[in-house]
Design a protein around this nucleic acid. Structure first.
Length: 291
RNA sequence: GGCCCGAUAGCUCAGUCGGUAGAGCAGUGGAUUGAAAAUUCACGUGUCGGCGGUUCAAAUCCGUCUCGGGCCA
């Protein structure tokens, strides 16, 4: 994690957040020039190589203007997660600072940013074998088990959300402690960090954002997204979740037509943007940048 | 011109024997600490195409008009 003001002589990072298609990338270029900075990616899917078009990563022309970091650094067969992201980003950011430049951290992946700014709670890493075992159980079984091991955590977890229930259970099993205890401790330790961070969240009207999404989807489909998806043979299940990936696959196999594909991508993107807005609305330290 | 089918939420449609309507999708709000572009929760008033009639009561039955679609001329 990036500790703010750890060394007052170093330039402090500046964060640029906002929903997809809000114009973060071009805003980042402006800020990088103003702050004498370099851009660091904070987007879960722009991390991957070969997904540049459907993840709307900055173009080569944009990257030539200012140094860009952590774009296309992972093979699509790999599966990133928030912890890996922090591992990758921390040294890159420190290196930029050591050269006297300002890290301009730009992206829309709320959880990744949260881990970067507030750190990762000392929770055990996910275990594939255990997850497979839990996946074979019913949600009722998982809930019952969690209620037994950690009733406090169970009472504050959305018990219909399988993902959340199994993660809480996983933490208890792997750590041998109560997930609620670890989380509470972490919350106390990191309570004051937000006030020392600086960054903005780009805000647009829904109408404007939806129009921008529609334009971008069209441009993607016309600008090589089909070829990009067709070229992806080996891919992690993680990458398959990229918005547009499945839709374009269906278009390529002829299951749906172009107009349907475009509509589906637009709807999925709008829904994602809404979830991002909900997330960033809670991050009170982000100053709204109304565009 | 004649006949038939359709018209109900932004969209696609359901609606039984008449008792003033409900699904999916879209949309809106929320949750969120190692899968997060993921996962998940909540939210359903709309001239039932218009007008008239029958009836205690019409989305539902009857008449008529309008607009689609089809068939026959």
């Amino acid at each position: 994690m990036i500790i703010p003001d750890s060394d007052p002589n170093l330039p402090q990072p500046f964060y640029i957040c906002g929903p997809t298609a809000s114009g973060k990338s071009s805003f980042a270029l402006e800020m990088a020039e103003k702050l004498d900075g370099e851009i660091v990616n904070a987007d879960a899917f722009q991390l991957y190589q070969g997904l540049e078009i459907i993840s709307a990563a900055p173009s080569p022309a944009e990257r030539a203007l200012v140094p860009h970091h952590l774009y296309g650094v992972l093979d699509p067969t790999e599966s990133a997660d928030a912890q890996l992201y922090v591992k990758l980003a921390t040294p890159v950011i420190a290196e930029i600072q050591s050269r006297g430049k300002t890290p301009v951290i730009t992206g829309g992946s709320g959880l990744y940013l949260k881990f970067l700014t507030h750190g990762a709670a000392p929770l055990p890493t996910g275990n594939a074998a255990l997850r497979a075992e839990m996946d074979s159980k019913s949600i009722e079984e998982l809930v019952a088990q969690l209620q037994q091991l950690d009733p406090v955590e169970a009472s504050r977890t959305a018990l219909q959300n399988r993902r959340f229930v199994s993660r809480a259970l996983e933490i208890c099993i792997l750590s041998g402690q109560k997930a609620s205890d670890i989380r509470d401790g972490w919350e106390k330790q990191t309570a004051d960090i937000s006030s020392r961070l600086r960054g903005i969240v780009i805000q647009r009207t829904r109408e404007d954002l939806h129009a921008r999404i529609a334009l971008r989807t069209k441009a993607m489909l016309d600008g090589g997204a089909l070829e990009e998806v067709a070229a992806m043979s080996a891919i992690s299940s993680n990458c398959e979740k990229a918005i547009g990936f499945r839709e374009i696959r269906s278009l390529l196999t002829g299951e749906i037509d172009r107009a349907t594909c475009e509509d589906l991508i637009n709807a999925a993107t709008r829904q994602y943007a809404k979830r991002q807005e909900t997330w960033f609305r809670r991050e009170k330290w982000l100053v709204p940048e109304v565009v």
